[in-house]
C-alpha cells in the first residue's frame, strides 16, 4: 500500500467537484423544500394530496442531490459507488414498505379505533 505516486489533487474524486453543480443543487433543493413548506402551512391541498405531493418533491430533491452532491454516475471513478447505492435502494423500499404493509394489516385486525382519526398508515 504505497502512497500514490501521483498528486492526490489530480485524483478523479477531487476533480469531480463542481461549484456550479453545488450552487444549482442548493437553489433547487431549497426551493423544492420551500414549496413543500408552503403547501403544508397554507393547507392549500387535501391531506392525502399533501402527502403525495411532498413525497414526490422529496423524491425529486433527493434525486437532484444524488446526482449533483453525491455524484452518482457511471464514470470510472464513481461507478462502484453508484452500483452500491443501487443495490441498497430496493432494500430500503423492502424494509419500510413490507413493514408498513404487515403492520397496516395487523393494526386493522387488532386495534380498536375510531373511524374519524386518520393515521399515517390508514389514510
Amino acid at each position: 500500500m504505497s502512497a500514490s505516486h501521483h498528486d492526490p489533487l489530480s485524483h478523479p474524486e477531487v476533480q469531480l467537484a463542481s461549484g456550479r453543480g453545488y450552487v444549482a443543487n442548493f437553489l433547487v433543493t431549497t426551493l423544492l423544500m420551500g414549496f413543500g413548506l408552503w403547501l403544508s402551512v397554507t393547507h392549500a391541498v387535501a391531506p392525502l394530496t399533501l402527502v403525495a405531493v411532498t413525497s414526490g418533491i422529496a423524491a425529486v430533491a433527493v434525486g437532484v442531490q444524488a446526482y449533483l452532491l453525491l455524484h452518482m454516475n457511471l464514470s470510472e471513478a464513481q461507478i462502484w459507488h453508484t452500483v452500491a447505492m443501487i443495490l441498497f435502494l430496493p432494500l430500503f423500499v423492502v424494509t419500510i414498505g413490507l413493514t408498513a404493509w404487515m403492520f397496516h394489516g395487523l393494526y386493522a385486525r387488532t386495534m380498536i379505533m375510531s373511524p374519524h382519526i386518520g393515521a399515517f398508515l390508514h389514510r
Binding site: M33, A58, Q65, A66
Partner: peptide
C-alpha cells in the same frame, strides 16, 4: 442533507396532517 430531506418531509411537513 439527503437524510434531512426525508426527515423534513416525512416528519415535519407530513406531520402537520397527522
Amino acid at each position: 442533507a439527503v437524510i434531512w430531506v426525508f426527515v423534513f418531509t416525512f416528519v415535519y411537513l407530513q406531520g402537520t396532517v397527522l
